[in-house]
Design a protein around this nucleic acid. Structure first.
Length: 576
RNA sequence: GCGCCCGUAGCUCAAUUGGAUAGAGCGCCAGACUACGAAUCUGGAGGUUGGAGGUUCGAUUCCUCCCGGGCGCGCCA
């Protein structure tokens, strides 16, 4: 909420009290939203609920309100339109408010002060001993954006990489190594070698189902806590995997506050299970210990130990929830994990709920859709590369970067650090595309159109930044302070200013709904408005007073676009 | 079979969580670079919001039932 809104809200409340409404009842009903059609006004009040409170018809109340809200230094007009009241701010006041807040980096355009929230964000979480592939990208990119967005609105954030470094997948890989592997080959190229071994396991287990029993035995040995062969191997592969993951993380600009994988909870599961027993909800079923959740509408029981006594994914997530509770005291724990795992998190939350643990209400699954590509017959299916099956993240990033490099060669052949810019823009294009739509939607990669960098894309927004930076370079005078310009000269920039004013709402919604696409959408809208504005409004060569005013606007647009992109984990080059 | 998610323009998506005339991009058609970046901008065509009921001042949004697509459903993660 901006100062303009606050002012309007105060005037409205006073008016409503004048009209005989109870202050406390009326206040929460004053909802100021941007009108659907911005031609109607800058903000609108729907008088429906207030009318009910007043015992009047909505259009009648709207008319009364409009008549009483006379113009002042900030409000230009109030007009009733049926059950709505549309308000316009004075253009100079609008420009002054928005631009000075952006220039001084005040919230919501800059980072807010602590809001008391502590948010744990569990994201990325690749499995060790496997390549970082396309399936890991969404959790990584979404989680990274959510970390940045929550920090921006003032939360204390703990970004956690809950590495898949325990359990059966790893035991299978180990089985393969013990049967067919050797150390020299392993050290030569650990990730590739491990991946080959894992694939071989998948092939051979079909002929020899006994392999799964072997893997289970290795997992028991690993979980025994003894310093044995399994443990040494686990450690080696974990270290190598972490090193390898740094590649994609660096390219994507992702960092973590904590790398506490499933293995971190190895020695914390017994206590967690104790706690479940103490709560009296753990039952035996076919040799396994489970928690039934039928009363919560979940038919499938949550299995916490297998009949051979070893633990599961759920056991570790439960221990992790308890650990995070005492370590971070989170108000929210976000699990950025694909929608296909909804049942898992319903069960996790269900167990905590049944145990009457307060932390249950903090547990929030943040689901997202799949990554699909278009097959030859035009159907969308699980992602496959142009050539075939295995899809590594690097392959996609490289292709995007190469395409950007080609565009630069064509449009800006003299660009100095072209390779560096191509990397920056190419990777951003993929990230932006991932964050553009509601996260529950599948990301559809059409190889032919994904490399088309026109319209609503990352490069479009970055291009706007570069264009603005170019103007700031060319004008050759410093950007004045907002106080030093005549804000009335920016009346022609109302569309830009109104979009700027929406930034706070967009970020707030993104944080509340764990939905970065609100930020992405705002960046696209702002880039579009400033592009349109620049068509008819020149900065360089304008008379000094106008030039200075527009300079502030251009600078603010560049700052705000940069901030928005930063919340998505994207940077913008000054030239591209 | 049961559960969950999705269905909006030819395609990919929005719609401020129940509000005004459902908006963008791509594609298509017609335009704009001899003043700041054309990776851009300005117009235009394009809709029974999958279907049928219901709830109410008001439904793309909520409820019920269908249809279509996807995901999941006891010792994997």
């Amino acid at each position: 909420m901006t100062d303009l809104h606050r002012h309007l809200r105060d005037r409205l409340l006073a008016t409503l009290v004048d009209l005989g409404l109870a202050r406390d009842a009326a206040q929460p009903l004053i909802r100021l939203d941007p009108p659907k059609n911005r031609d109607h006004g800058d903000v609108a009040l729907g008088a429906f609920q207030l009318a009910k409170l007043a015992g009047k018809a909505p259009p009648a109340l709207a008319a009364e309100i409009a008549a009483k809200i006379t113009s002042d230094a900030i409000i230009e007009s109030a007009a009733a339109a049926g059950p709505f009241v549309n308000f316009r701010f004075r253009r100079a006041a609008l420009a002054l408010e928005v631009l000075s807040a952006i220039q001084s980096d005040a919230a919501p355009y800059g980072k807010a002060r602590g809001n008391g929230d502590v948010v744990c964000i569990d994201f990325s979480s690749p499995n060790i001993a496997k390549p970082f592939h396309i399936g890991h990208m969404r959790s990584t990119v979404l989680g990274n954006a959510l970390c940045r967005i929550h920090r921006h609105v003032g939360a204390t954030v703990h970004g956690i990489n809950h590495l898949g470094d325990w359990g059966m997948p790893f035991a299978k890989m180990m089985t393969a190594y013990m049967r067919w592997g050797n150390e020299q080959e392993l050290h030569r190229s650990p990730m590739r070698y491990m991946f080959d071994l894992y694939k071989r396991y998948g092939v051979e287990v079909k002929q020899n189902p006994g392999l799964d029993g072997e893997a289970a035995a290795h997992f028991r040995a690993l979980e025994s806590g003894v310093d044995n062969q399994e443990r040494r191997m686990w450690k080696l592969l974990r270290d190598e995997s972490l090193k390898a993951f740094q590649g994609p993380y660096a390219r994507l600009g992702v960092t973590f506050d904590h790398i506490t994988g499933e293995s971190f909870f190895e020695d914390k599961m017994a206590a967690a299970l104790q706690r479940v027993v103490a709560a009296g909800v753990l039952e035996q079923s076919d040799g396994a210990s489970v928690v039934w959740l039928k009363e919560l509408g979940i038919k499938e029981p949550c299995i916490l130990t297998k009949s051979d006594g070893t633990t599961l994914y759920h056991t570790r997530d439960l221990a992790a929830a308890f650990y995070r509770e005492v370590t971070f005291h989170p108000t929210r724990i976000l699990y950025v994990v694909g929608a296909e795992q909804k049942l898992h998190f319903d069960q996790l939350k269900g167990v905590l709920t049944k145990m009457q643990e307060p932390i249950a209400k903090a547990v929030e699954h943040v689901p997202f859709g799949l990554v699909l590509s278009k097959s030859d017959d035009g159907k969308w299916e699980k992602f496959a590369s142009r050539s075939g099956n295995a899809v590594f993240l690097d392959e996609i990033l490289d292709e995007a970067v190469a395409k950007v490099r080609a565009v630069i060669r064509e449009k800006n052949p003299d660009l100095a650090n072209a390779d560096q810019v191509a990397e920056q823009v190419g990777v951003s294009a993929i990230v932006f595309n991932d964050l553009k739509n509601s996260r529950i939607k599948d990301v559809k990669f059409d190889w032919d159109s994904m490399l088309q960098f026109e319209g609503e894309t990352g490069p479009y927004v970055q291009y706007a930044c570069a264009r603005l930076a170019s103007i700031l370079r060319k004008v050759e005078v410093p950007v004045p302070a907002v106080d030093a310009i005549d804000c009335a000269l920016l009346a022609d920039a109302e569309r830009v200013l109104l979009v700027m004013m929406d930034f706070g709402t967009a970020v707030q919604k993104a944080a509340e709904q764990s939905e970065p696409s609100h930020v992405t959408g705002h960046a696209i809208a702002l880039a579009g408005e400033i592009h349109s504005y620049l068509r008819d409004h020149y900065v360089v060569g304008a008379e000094p007073a106008v030039r200075d005013a527009r300079l502030v606007l251009v600078d603010a647009a560049r700052r705000l676009l940069t901030t928005g992109l930063a919340l998505l984990g994207i940077t913008a080059p000054d030239r591209m």
